[in-house]
Computed example of a mutant assay.
Amino acid sequence: MSGTITRVGVVGGGQMGAGIAEVCARAGLHTVVCEADATAARRARERVTASLERAVQRGKLDRPSAEDALTRLAFTAGLDDLADRHLVIEAVVENTDAKTEVFAALDKIVQDPGAILATNTSAIPVMRLGMATQRADHVLGLHFFNPVPVLPLVEVVPSLHTAARTVTAVETFARDTLGKTTIRSQDRTGFVVNALLIPYLLSAVRMAESGFATAADVDAGMELGCAHPMGPLKLADLIGLDTVVAIAQSLYEEFREPLYAPPPLLRRMVEAGLLGRKTGRGFHTYDRDREAR
């Protein structure tokens, strides 16, 4: 790709994909969000619209800016609508097969041979996704954090094949266009943040699982005793317990360290559909305003 990134595509309009699309649109970029079908695309639009409205209500964004951002957003159920993009960010479910399928398809669809294909994966090796394309030098990890419009960090993760110019272009884009702070990580499962965070969350789960302390007391201990803004089990609920399990399993498969293995309680909760805030119940329960109780 030559020139500035002005046309962005996002594959996946869930919590993360919608957040990524929102920050791109707010930064003045024409952004196309691709979902699996028309119903999912409509929900993605509703998700972004609601987030922009919350920002207005909280005084973080003025209404004309929110309305302008919406005019720069398009929602589709067809990957072909991403053909003219300069940058496409994949944000589908944390599953290797699903992500690989997306990258193989994008490689054929995105017309500019210099366009950059990025993944928002939390733990899947970037190399594996890059090798599904014929342009592995233009593939890298661009890992945002939830909620994307609020948290300033982005991890930039090149694989062994990623060209230096690709890394520079994406770091410049994230920093200068989106206003994010970037850190760079090697292509190892978990990258910097989750390699440190997930063992901490799993330790908290094991503590609650064993009856050593209640979920409320574990969280209160870290919030009030260590000045953490959110306790580990509330944070796991926010991330999504299914996502925590997926990252933990990827970490365990790569490093074979017991501290990365998801505890039985966590796996059972995911099997039961108790995924945290997005389902209304995890280690805590949540009302419509998503407050833990």
Rank of each mutant, 00 (worst) to 15 (best):
S159V: 05
T4N: 14
G19F: 03
A41N: 13
E171H: 03
A77H: 09
A66K: 11
S2Q: 15
M230V: 12
P158I: 08
L160G: 11
R268P: 11
R184V: 13
R165Y: 09
H228I: 01
D107N: 15
G280M: 02
T279V: 14
Q15H: 10
E22T: 12
I109P: 05
Q15K: 07
D237W: 05
A174I: 02
H228E: 08
V56F: 04
G211D: 10
D217V: 08
R188M: 05
K180C: 10
Q57S: 04
R165C: 10
L178H: 07
Q57L: 07
L140G: 08
T285W: 08
A50L: 13
G211W: 05
T189C: 00
L274K: 14
L274Q: 15
D112P: 09
A136F: 01
D219P: 06
K60R: 15
I116P: 02
L151C: 04
G12H: 02
M1C: 10
E90M: 00
I116H: 03
P258I: 04
G225Q: 00
L29C: 13
L87T: 02
E253T: 12
V126Y: 02
E94Q: 10
A21L: 02
S51N: 12
P258S: 12
T76G: 11
V244M: 05
E253D: 14
L142R: 03
R256E: 08
G12R: 07
L117A: 01
E46M: 14
A208P: 10
R268H: 14
A292V: 04
R45L: 07
Q15W: 04
D37W: 00
N146I: 08
L87F: 05
V167F: 11
V102L: 05
F173V: 02
A204D: 06
L265F: 09
L241N: 12
G190M: 03
V88P: 13
D242G: 15
P147F: 06
D68H: 04
A98D: 03
A208C: 10
Y260S: 03
I183P: 06
R43L: 07
N194F: 04
R256I: 00
E271W: 04
N120M: 00
L233R: 04
L129W: 06
